[in-house]
Amino acid sequence: MNIFRFAGDMTHLISILILLLKIYATKSCAGISLKTQELYALVFLTRYLDLFTDYVSLYNTVMKIVFIASSLAIVWCMRRHPLVRRSYDKDLDTFRHQYVVLACFVLALLLNEKFTIQEVFWAFSIYLEAVAILPQLVLLQRSGNVDNLTGQYVLFLGAYRGLYIINWIYRYFTEDHFTRWIACVSGLVQTGLYADFFYYYYLSWKTNTKLKLPA
């Protein structure tokens, strides 16, 4: 475990905690895409199938449980919590994510490290994570403005991906057998998706104006 990966996991955890805090404190999920949260829950559930069968470290196991539990808690809040669900803008969150799920599954059947249930689902979760942010970015564009916490949420998610890419570069140079093409390529695609958001976020921060995404 290197510092980049640990920092990446921490920023990932912080992004989820920001979202949980925002929903819990404001009892509102305005500006948050339920579809993105459902995709993330699916990512964790399909990626951590080896949670009970394959023990890497206590850290890994604890983090996997935390990620699964927190993502399901967010989805549950947005769907079931009487107060929170009222503030969900259903008519803005219209990204047809089922096609994305299907495309990622087909891709995982074709491109995987080994044609086993566990490996296919792992590859599926990697591809799905790359595009899971799309409904959220579409919703932000639709709603025009980005409130602080949601902006910070996407910012920390982007930091997590960026740190993981540095972690892969670091491991590539320090470990002889390290190759993880599926995760690397997919991670690059995912970080690319954030790049435009980062650009507008930086602009709004620099010009000290409210973050406006081009419609």
């Binding site: 990966r5 996991d9 990932h12 990626r47 080896d50 069968t53 394959d54 023990y55 890497v56 470290s57 890994n60 983090m63 996997k64 990620f67 566990q118 792992w122 993981y164 972690n167 995760a183």
Partner: peptide
């Protein structure tokens, strides 16, 4: 499923 081959990242 040897640990070396498993996915040791999150």
């Amino acid at each position: 499923w040897s640990a070396s081959q498993s996915h040791d990242e999150l």
